[in-house]
Write a protein that binds this DNA or RNA. Sequence first.
RNA 1: GCAGAAAUGGUGGAAUUGGUAGACACGUUGGACUUAAAAUCCAAUGGGUAGUAAUGCCCGUGCGGGUUCAAGUCCCGCUUUCUGUACCA
Length: 942
Amino acid sequence: MQYHFNDIEAKWQKYWAEHKTFQAKNQSEKPKYYVLDMFPYPSGAGLHVGHPLGYIASDIYARYKRHKGFNVLHPQGYDSFGLPAEQYAIQTGQHPAITTETNIATYRRQLDQIGFSFDWSREVRTSNPEYYKWTQWIFVQLFNSWFNNDSGKAEDISTLETIFSAEGNTTVNAVCDDNIEPFTAEAWHSFSSEQKQDVLLQYRLTYLAETEVNWCPALGTVLANDEIVNGVSERGGHTVVRKKMTQWSMRISAYAERLLQGLNTIDWTDSLKESQRNWIGKSVGASVTFNVKGHDDKIDVFTTRPDTIFGVNFMTLAPEHELVAKIVTAEQKADVEAYIEKTAKRSERERMADVKTISGVFTGAYAEHPFTKEPVAIWIGDYVLASYGTGAVMAVPCGDQRDYDFANHFGITIPNIFEGVDISETAFGEKGKTKLMNSDFLNGLAYKEASKKAIEALEAIGQGEGKTNYRLRDAVFSRQRYWGEPFPVYYVNGKPQMIAMEHLPIRLPEVEKYLPTETGEPPLGRADVWAWDTELNTVVSNEKINNTTVFPLELNTMPGWAGSSWYFFRYMEEASKRGDAFASEDALNYWESVDLYIGGSEHATGHLLYSRFWVKFLKDRGFVNIEEPFKKLINQGMILGTSAFVYREEGTNTYLSHGLIEGKSVSPIHVKVQYVNASDELDIEGLKTDGEFGEDFKDAEFILEDGVYKVGREVEKMSKSKYNVVNPDQICAEYGADSLRLYEMFLGPLEQAKPWNTAGITGVHGFLKKLWKLYIGEESVNVTDAEPTKDNLKTLHKTIKKVEDDIENFSFNTSVSTFMIAVNEFNAQKCVSKAVLEPFLVLLSPYAPHIAEELWSQLGNLESISEAPFPEFDGSHLVESSKVYPISFNGKMRFTLELSLDLGKGEIEKIVMAHEKTQDQLQGRTPKKVIVVPGKIINIVG
RNA sequence: GCAGAAAUGGUGGAAUUGGUAGACACGUUGGACUUAAAAUCCAAUGGGUAGUAAUGCCCGUGCGGGUUCAAGUCCCGCUUUCUGUACCA
């Protein structure tokens, strides 16, 4: 009988589905284990070979845990709101819901054929109204909450109102807007309802605020920093302007300290925790207020070096700082405006990365040093970002390299405040390495004492205080898009009102086109039925808006991270019981949190931070009992694609083969990798008749070398736009899912990025054929009840140990080698013993479940292998009596010698020294030293 | 610029605690089987060098130093690549 993998795989996939083999139960005698993948966005390109890498790893772990006796929850779903479906809708008019539905069907088929042990009964889709109902509900909870710094927790907004009516806001220690006006209890009572709403909005955990965005009028959308190149949109090259917009924001900054501290309690890689720490960016220092000379205005700065306050002799504002226009002098106005215009064209990212170009302009205005009252020149420079801190920096050129370079470039003097330090070449940035001078009352003090004293002095004159600053900014939560969760919000006189829980979900309205409106409103501005009737409690036609009972609804939608910030809770509830809570208390208490989470590192600071924020919030409000959602997290490395290029000679329609481009002016153009064979030769006919790009190449001339057109190759991120996507379907059809699973693991360490290359897949496929032949002969099963030999048991137990260790350490690539070695050994031993070959299948089953199930049943088992207990390791089978010692001379191995492990150091040395090969090596010399490490090595020095 | 990760044969990678570098595969070469091909099986395969051969010697884990009886592994200094990025004031 032959190994017919297609039949076997289809058979067992059907079996698992029919028998609900992997459906998790919310009650069990077994301990629970929750294994989760980052759910995919169902793109039109379908699943590529990079997606399954993490899914295979988590599936191996989930199956392993089942063998180890755990009640495993291993669900999957779709992050199904997103831009590509919307973009497609804009181009074709097709509703994104339809595109999404089609794409999900493709993903499901592709995932099913790989044989994952997902519990599909618990599937979630973020774009499903029954799901986003609860996303909207969480938003309302955030709106109805404020963060009390005294308790360190979010509380219901009503507790804040109680405080306001009893004692005003001066005693409240809350996370809130910066520009809060103090008021008394009496004043609170005298406020109108609208005034009260305005005040409360300054405290709510989600709030409306003016935020600066990159606005592209031609596209009618807001762009991310990396979508802007040289001040124009990457797509289409349209101008981009900075524009202020009123948007929903989330007060994630309230949780900065808890997000930071929580990292110490979870089992994530140090590198990932480090990037979250950097993102949160806690720094301890002081805020300092500078008065502007000749104006009433003040400039606040934050500094980590209050000790260097006497080294300040200028300051720099971000070009977009609101004071710039106000304080600039007439003589400098033209220069300043020209500079601001130039800066406006650079993205934040560009400004950050470019440190070589020093640029800036003097405003002509001066601030006043808080202690010396000396004038401090106010400059603007684009290395200061408006969105970070206060958008202003006090410059200490002798103590900060960037300030030093800036001063040097513009001929500003650099006063020295460090005792015994030469600052003629470079700034001195080391804290506490010397004492201060030229610093008045700080003279002779080191960093720590000086900082303390400086802060005390600033506080005494009311021009500063000690402060802890976080880099983490509040997160903008509005998107000017169609395909996202609508806000459950309507506006009365411009004040946002929440729609009550019992009326949710507020479903996305129908629109004619998915573009922004001509007046620049988001796509929902095109909806005709998009108003809220407060009497009928339903969405009604816009014509009925009367602003007394019927009001306009919010036009923005929520960002992609809304739905993905809590989906792991939704899986906890059995689908049939998903009633009137986002998950029942029982389900939440049973599954608690995700035990193992696997996904890409690109989500390190987005999704993983927002999820942690929402979980902490939900805990504060009593909806969940956990502080951290993901106990252990592994990042799988990116699978890179090998892109292919053709080279068009500049200004022609002629393409040169890769070997001919030297010295020519050519532009490389991506071509689809399916038209390129393993020898980098291009299928020109295929390219010319391609449905998508054939037209572009129809009349092109291809210049060949040695009769073929050779493409250039480059390893890049696998992406639809680079035309290097490789699809798993063909591999499943040609080699089977088990081969794909083994091969993806065999490629290398899970966490390392690696280019995809199918060249080696025949190796793992050949292994599976060998394995099959070990169990199944020409006519019948080979396996017998024969007693296992010593060697059989040795191979088995060696393999048990190695595979178990590998899985626990997420080192799946080395397990595959171990299986190959074991099968090679069993073959050499002519092993037929069921006592050895049966448990071996359990070891293999997490990796190659279909063939393991088939052989398991061929051996006469009637139940699925998936719950079979993992074999117990017995070390007694591995005990050795002798060791082949490497004999080294001066650290170089010269020959080996087999010796009993019972021998002591002295005996070993005696035998080795007496050996004829030793004497050959020494050639009469007397060794200075002989190192003997029993069981390891012998090294003779001399 | 900053942060994190990485660099080992023609290729993917292994060496888990400092102890025989290159496991396991791919590829390549030679052989068996076959009318032939595919499939399968066997053998060789880091580079150089001496020898008919058995075998031996030299070099070798990005580069330069160091610690050690012994370094891919530890320390110091660099280079390159990948990923992320908000000049961390």
